[in-house]
Design a protein around this nucleic acid. Structure first.
Length: 373
DNA sequence: GAAGCGTGGTA
DNA sequence: TTACCAAGCTT
């Protein structure tokens, strides 16, 4: 296989480009791979260290739409709390949600627990060793099934995540916009994936996408695919992948009601419904959130939504938080109580136990505002 | 196929 | 600062 085009030829056209090849990527990965808590690096794999499917699965679920930096501490915490699949299967969903709090996309945590239970019960505690069977499990879709199968079981199956979509759309100058481009991209990845080390190839591609082949200002001169990349050849790398424009987020408005226990400053919490946004997570008692766009929540009417029989005072400032599909602006009201149960359905959380609650970030911001004053 | 579903980092 | 982005899945 030719490694390089003739010297002296600049990449103004793609006529003389060689085909991208997996060997160049694997060689780059061997030298430049990241070292990550869930990863067995090539040097160790070559002397027989194997990937633990439980670790691979755990990391892949956590990494869905989530950065490596955010995942690391959660991965370590989960493996400390539940070292094996059977430990996790023996845990309660409540404890899993508490440990997941702050990482986002909470259906992942509920599916993580469901999946552990299912594998424990129906697969004798061992993950299926191929993508097709893995995809049947809760929380495991196209990408994750392929990733686990290739990384943990060396199955030669195309792995396509956002990084790889970007790399491949550049390598092959794919003008079609996502998500329509997914099919041709997957075909190219299948073509490119080697029968040897398919898992290292997938991880290498993702490392490349996370470093050199970045969305903005890719470092093409250092890339193992340099000279074989069609987008580089036409000098138009940043334009790919082409994506449909995104809708702008509306803003919603609401109020949250902090009830502090007089004697020790404990906060009254309650559980959210088991469907929809932040399902089954904990919350500070709150109003509904109003206003698809401009229709603003009337501040004067906020107290109409307050728990009954309590006198609230409004705190200075607002909590601003952005979810996947809308911005939220919350006014925060506060009161102190000496009741053992200021409203029905809920519980007191003492200051030192708040960190262990299944409180999403938006409500941690609310509590934080109450502590500042 | 489109919409719902979190969060923190970055430019 | 607003907007975008990061190892997607489910309905």
């Amino acid at each position: 296989m030719d490694q390089k085009q003739e010297s002296g030829v600049t990449n103004k056209t793609n006529q003389q480009l060689n085909k991208p090849n997996a060997e160049a990527l694997l060689a780059w990965y061997d030298r430049h791979h990241r070292t990550l808590p869930w990863r067995v690096i090539p040097k160790d794999r070559s002397v027989g260290v194997v990937n633990d499917p439980y670790h691979v699965w755990m990391s892949e679920i956590m990494l869905q739409q989530t950065t490596v930096g955010a995942v690391k501490s959660y991965f370590e915490k989960f493996l400390t709390m539940w070292p094996t699949l059977s430990d996790l299967a023996a845990a309660s969903e409540e404890d899993v949600l508490k440990a997941w709090a702050g990482l986002g996309y909470y259906s992942r945590a509920r599916n993580l627990k469901k999946c552990a239970d299912h594998v424990q019960l129906h697969h004798n505690g061992r993950f299926p060793d191929n993508a097709k069977a893995l995809k049947e499990l809760p929380g495991i879709g196209d990408y994750t099934s392929a990733a686990i199968a290739s990384i943990a079981f060396d199955e030669e199956v195309p792995v396509v995540d956002g990084n790889i979509e970007r790399i491949v759309s550049r390598l092959y100058h794919i003008e079609e916009a996502l998500p329509k481009a997914k099919k041709p991209i997957k075909e190219k990845v299948a073509e490119l994936t080697p029968s040897e080390r398919p898992g290292d190839f997938a991880q290498g591609m993702m490392d490349l996408g996370a470093s050199l082949c970045s969305p903005k200002k890719p470092a093409c001169s250092l890339c193992p695919f340099s000279g074989t990349c069609e987008a580089e050849g036409i000098g138009d790398q940043e334009r790919f992948p082409i994506k449909a424009p995104k809708k702008q987020k509306p803003t919603r408005y609401g109020a949250a009601f902090l009830i502090k226990r007089q004697e020790d400053g404990a906060i009254w919490l309650r559980q959210r419904p088991d469907k929809g946004l932040l399902a089954s997570m904990s919350e500070v008692p709150s109003s509904d959130w109003f206003g698809k766009s401009a229709e603003k929540f009337e501040l004067a009417s906020a107290l109409d939504h307050a728990p009954e029989g309590l006198e609230f005072r409004k705190l200075v400032g607002q909590v601003i938080h952005t979810f996947t599909h809308f911005h939220l602006v919350l006014d925060v009201y506060e009161t102190t109580s000496t009741d053992s149960e200021p409203m029905n359905k809920g519980w007191w959380s003492e200051p030192q136990s708040l960190k262990d609650e299944a409180l999403p970030t938006v409500f941690r911001k609310v509590v934080e505002m109450g502590l500042e004053r």
